[in-house]
């Protein structure tokens, strides 16, 4: 075990705060930097894994152009979220590179990438539950020193329900509303890229459609969207670019329509 105190007394609530500890660890970029293609944001031929563990990604490439929606789909355990995290700098890359707008950002920490204009919405724990909706948005804009009221108004335009609930603690909202807060928080940084890890996990189909509509709207404003989705069919329907990953490798790549039409993709992932 890593620390002799790992198994001891960490459940004692009178001395140790319960709940999830921070899991966000910056990755490393040790190996060769590859350059095989160009895009606005590209994770180029990435190979690597968590910590010193086995490689999860193998020569995997994920890219998105400006104002487009790229979707990563694939079976369970295919490394979808891992691929996204690699692009965001949370993986130890043994080979490959990440470039944003032509600049090599492979060695940057996730926080530095936030400053470069990348916003990330984790799958779970993606809002500040004890803070009001408005405070959540303010925290999203923490790095900005300019006037944020314009951006906040845009977020409220995009998600009108949030405006009504802006003084409510975000933890009291419904699942779909929480996801809106999470996306809204990420948008407050005025990012050039928005990365979403399974934004529709656990929400009802109606809410899901609504959320996808909003995501399309966001993309129309020129923000690139990279998202991992469990609901492959609906996601590919709105995707400009789709990546099907299998065991950490690119299995199929194409536009959303192409992939939806590809018989093999249909057979193996979309249930016929």
């Amino acid at each position: 075990m890593s620390s002799p105190y790992e198994g001891r007394a960490n459940k004692d609530a009178s001395i140790v705060k319960q709940g999830t500890r921070s899991t966000l660890t910056p990755g490393t970029a040790t190996g060769e930097r590859t350059h095989t293609a160009d895009a606005f944001l590209i994770g180029d031929s990435m190979t690597g894994g968590y910590g010193s563990g086995a490689d999860i990604l193998h020569d995997c490439t994920i890219a998105v152009e400006k104002g487009e929606i790229a979707v990563i789909v694939g079976p369970n355990g295919a490394g979808k979220s891992t691929g996204m995290k690699a692009v965001f700098g949370m993986l130890n890359l043994r080979k490959g590179a990440v470039r944003l707008d032509g600049e090599d950002i492979t060695a940057l920490t996730p926080q530095d990438r936030v400053a470069k204009g990348m916003a990330f919405v984790p799958q779970t724990s993606n809002i500040f539950t004890s803070m009001t909706v408005e405070e959540n948005l303010e925290m999203g804009a923490f790095l900005r020193r300019d006037d944020i009221s314009g951006t906040m108004a845009q977020v409220y335009d995009l998600f009108p329900i949030l405006k009504d609930k802006r003084r409510q603690p975000a933890g009291e909202l419904s699942g779909g509303q929480r996801q809106q807060v999470a996306v809204g928080r990420a948008l407050m940084t005025q990012p050039t890229v928005l990365m979403l890890d399974e934004p529709t996990a656990g929400v009802s189909p109606i809410v899901m459609d609504e959320l996808f509509d909003r995501i399309i709207e966001v993309a129309r404003t020129g923000i690139s969207i990279l998202m991992v989705e469990q609901n492959a069919r609906q996601a590919l329907a709105i995707a400009d670019k789709g990546y099907v990953l299998v065991q950490g490798r690119n299995a199929h790549t194409g536009t959303g329509k192409e992939l939806l039409a590809d018989p093999e993709v249909r057979r193996s992932f979309l249930g016929g």
Partner: peptide
């Protein structure tokens, strides 16, 4: 529900 042994 969670331990409170230390303070106890």
């Amino acid at each position: 529900r969670s331990d409170y042994l230390a303070i106890a």
